[in-house]
Amino acid sequence: MRAIRHIAVNVFRESVRDKVLYNLVFFAVLLISASYLLGQLTAGQDVKIIKDLGLAATSIFGLFIAVFIGIGLVSKEVERRSVYGVLAKPVRRHEFVLGKYLGLVLTLAVNIAVMAVALYLVLGYMAWMTPANVQAAWDAPALDPALLKAVFLIFVELCLITAVALFFSTFSSSILSAVLTFGMFVAGHFDADLKNFDQVVASPAAGALARGMYYVLPNLASFDVKADVVHGQPVPWALMGLATGYGLVYIAMLVLAAMFIFSRRDFK
């Protein structure tokens, strides 16, 4: 347990110093702030566009963090052989994997929190500048707490993507892991479409393959409640719970598989 904690803290410390991270967070905050200008340009002065852009920026930049730093977690350590020093210490290999994962989850949580705070600051400024009667016409209040639901599910989705990155990086090179993880992200968003793919294509083999992939790939669309939140549609707690549970189960499977593979491999 102690080892896991120290490894996680070390991941956090290392990634905080990595310039990549600064740049990503900087651009995300910049984009969120810039959305204010766009909000000014559009008629109706609605905060929708700010919320839309802000959540999208959080999600996309979070994805970059998850992939670029997530891949570095394990495959870069193996490629650069820094893993040799750690694994000669009283650390079990699965503890190493788990510590790495938790460290990145911590990094993600802090970064997403920073972006969410930036978003709320822009929205708060917008609300302060806008007369009450105009605000009354908005679908949802500027500082709508429901935004946090969307942010939370983005976080769960990114934790899942990180687990995917971790899984690939336990046995493949960093570049290959990055490609595979991005691929998984894209495919995961179209996952729901795969279910009924057999009705669109003639070949039964392709249909079966699509159906197989539907069950294997994570269904990332289930974490996407951005549009509902922005338009003031209610997001039921049951849906939140279900999506979170689904994410956790998927993450657990990936992390366990990563531990299993990592514990048996040679470091050449």
């Binding site: 070390n10 410390r13 290392e14 110093r17 990595d18 650069r80 052989r81 820094s82 040799y84 020093g85 000669a88």
Partner: peptide, 12 residues
């Protein structure tokens, strides 16, 4: 254990 050509973490 001292590995051959040791390499650790860049940012520490």
């Amino acid at each position: 254990y001292l590995p051959e050509n040791p390499y650790f973490y860049d940012y520490l």
